[in-house]
Amino acid sequence: MKPLSLIVRTGCNLFAWFMLVFGVNVVVHGYASPGGGFQGGAIVATFIAFLLVSYGGEKIHSWVNEKIYDLILEETGLLLFITLAFMGLPTSFFYNFFTIPWEAYQQTGRLFPQGTTAIMSIAVGIEVAGALSMVILSMFKGIRLVSDRQIEEEPGHDR
């Protein structure tokens, strides 16, 4: 990618960190305010898009290994999510298994995140952030793959 002007790059760099914090905030407070797993995860994923603008692709690819996104973020989120779903299984799949009774909840001040929904929201947030960052990074890699390097025929076709 052609380098953009210094002001844009610095602005994006600053803005990226702000988006990261904001995204995490949206994920964590999804139970009580607008937001939740998807929205927050998507906002966190814009972080990597802004970094791509401000630093350029080569630097980003040298900093982050794709395995971080693939194996750590995405797998953690997905497996946490499906494990939570499985944990309700003695009752039924996806059963919300640790809700606090309504009366007890009212006494805590109604801001305490509880039930599986809050944890599932965080799990989905991690998953979506990892997944969308991965999409951005692989498509960015795809530009180089498409234009510079040949996509060669694979040995499997040979007989």
């Binding site: 999804g30 139970y31 009580a32 305010s33 607008p34 939740g36 797993g37 998807f38 989120g77 997905l78 999510f81 499906i82 779903a85 799949f93 996806f94 919300n96 809700t99 606090i100 309504w102 909840y105 109604r110 509880q114 039930g115 599986t116 929904t117 809050a118 599932m120 929201s121 989905v124 998953e127 979506v128």
Partner: peptide, 24 residues
């Protein structure tokens, strides 16, 4: 049922949670 203030979140993750896992 769930003591979640945001009704949309409670639908997304509990009442229609299976859609969400499909979406993931």
């Amino acid at each position: 049922d769930l003591s979640t203030e945001n009704v949309v979140t409670s639908i997304v993750f509990d009442y229609r949670g299976f859609d969400t896992i499909g979406e993931a």
